[in-house]
Structures are given as C-alpha cells and as structure tokens.
C-alpha cells in the first residue's frame, strides 16, 4: 500500500532559554522561530548574545554587522557589539568568523 505523507510533525522539541514571547528586535520574529532570512523552518538559526546582553538571531545580527553603516554597534544600545560565548569574547570581524565556525560545526 502506498502512503502519502500529508503532514509530518517532529516530536522532538527544544527552545532557547528565553521567554517564548521574546522577539528578535531586528526581524520581530520570536526567538523560538527562525528569523525572516531563513526560508525553511528548522534551518539552523541560533541566537547570538552580546556582551551588552542584547540578543538577536544570528542571521539578523550578522546581516546588520556586515553593513558598513552599522559601525559594529549593537542595534539596541549602540555599544560595540561583542558576541559572548562561554569564556570567549569576540568583537567585530571575529563575530563573523566565530559565527562561520558555529555554522560548520553545528
């Protein structure tokens, strides 16, 4: 018998450790969902937290920091944006290379 799969629901769920209503200040999409640059739900769309404690979807903050006029400033507090990851503190282009490595490892 041939079965057409009309709908598929993943059973594994996870969420970032943030209030579920909290949205990314750049794309206005919840942190539980992928950002508006991601086309497929489930695309890897991690959060990046800054030293200033502001957080964004990785894709959203990278797109902003790539633009020259961002001057590497946090969109919320206009302090220099440095991504925090455990012991590591990264700034400027380091954020980008860190994020790339994150992409490949993840």
């Amino acid at each position: 018998m041939l079965v057409d799969i009309l709908e598929w629901n993943g059973v594994a769920t996870w969420s970032w450790d943030v209030p579920s209503e909290e949205v990314c200040g750049i794309c206005r999409v919840s942190f539980d969902a992928t950002c508006s640059n991601c086309k497929i739900p489930g695309d890897q769309c991690p959060l990046v937290v800054g030293e200033c404690t502001h957080r964004f979807h990785m894709h959203c903050i990278v797109k902003w920091l790539e633009i020259e006029t961002s001057k590497n400033l946090c969109p919320m507090c206009r302090r220099s944006f440095k991504a925090v990851h455990g012991e590591k503190q990264l700034g400027g282009s380091q954020v980008l290379s860190y994020i790339e490595s994150f992409n490949f490892e993840g």
């Binding site: 200040g25 750049i26 902003w64 006029t69 206009r78």
Partner: peptide, 9 residues
C-alpha cells in the same frame, strides 16, 4: 541617516 538602527519600524 547615521543613527539608523535595524530595530526601528
């Protein structure tokens, strides 16, 4: 202009 932020709407 120079104080634009992507958090504005």
């Amino acid at each position: 202009q120079n104080r634009w932020s992507p958090t504005f709407d």
